[in-house]
Design a binder for these strands. Structure first.
Lengths: 148, 148
DNA sequence: ACTAAATACATTGATATCAATAGAAATGAG
DNA sequence: CTCATTTCTATTGATATCAATGTATTTAGT
């Protein structure tokens, strides 16, 4: 009959080379592995580090704003909190001013874990900074922010 | 005793603002949602689109190089192939020249699904291109490639 | 040819991700 | 105040992700 449903190989190469989504997912996986490896001695993954760092505030935040800050689905946040609660690093309490909501806070143990992880983050980040051309990291951050 | 394990709030803000890993994960989640939504009528997620597009070659590739191309763990690729096999879009066959390996190929149905998804990818990507300053997408791709 | 090492995948278990849905509480219209 | 709507979160089900481990096959050293 017809082979009109075949996509030319040249198109495949173009999509591979230009797809921003693919490039971001690739970089996300690679960076996640890098930070996961570095943070492993502290007992944290990159996502847990970012989440717990976002909870290190004067006032315990509700879940919605935290999910928005991390650009993550609210149900993902609910799930991500579970292991941190089990380990006793994060407390989830009912908001007395709005009983639908929860307030998230770090326990002293959680703060200690985060403090142990901080220097690892610093050295890992410095390593990446050093490997990229001067100024490109700041530029990259800005471009990424425009996407999320 | 001591409160030396407390990380100052200012440090938290600095980490949030500068952490490249967090920025990439955020952008990855946001872009994944964008493409997932757009590709849903075609029955594909962004990851399935990228994977299937990478299989659209003259010769069926083995798993290792595909996983490397997508910067994804080999076990993740094994898992990601399962639903595509079930739907009859991808074939996994033993490599006759190396019986440890597998060769991945698209079925005619898989090619048809991919062809249906391609214009969606094009319009979605054009939309993103239009929303960002001229040239920044190409620059962003280059910077991301340096990370993976 | 024989055997040790390396290679290519698969499986298991844990966490991450989101859509769809449901529940409970607050808010707003009247 | 009442009720419909909205808001905030949890649960379920499916896929995505990777570490640790296991199995089969190939390769290399002898």
């Amino acid at each position: 009959m017809s082979n009109s449903i075949e996509i030319p190989f040249s198109t495949t190469l173009m999509v591979r080379d230009t797809c921003l989504c693919l490039h971001v997912q690739r970089a996300a996986r690679a960076l996640a592995r890098l930070f996961d490896d570095a943070l492993r001695p502290a007992g944290l993954t990159n996502g847990q580090f970012s989440l717990m760092m976002s909870l290190n505030r004067p006032e315990p935040p509700p879940m919605g704003p935290v999910a928005a800050l991390l650009a993550m689905d609210q149900t993902t946040l609910t799930a991500a909190l579970k292991p941190l609660q089990r380990k006793g690093w994060v407390t989830v309490m009912e908001n007395p001013r709005d009983r639908r909501g929860r307030l998230l806070s770090l326990t002293p143990e959680g703060k200690a874990v985060l403090a142990k992880a901080l220097p690892i983050w610093e050295s890992t980040h410095a390593m990446i900074d050093g490997k990229l051309p001067d100024g490109s990291v700041a530029r990259l951050r800005q471009d990424l922010q425009a996407l999320s």
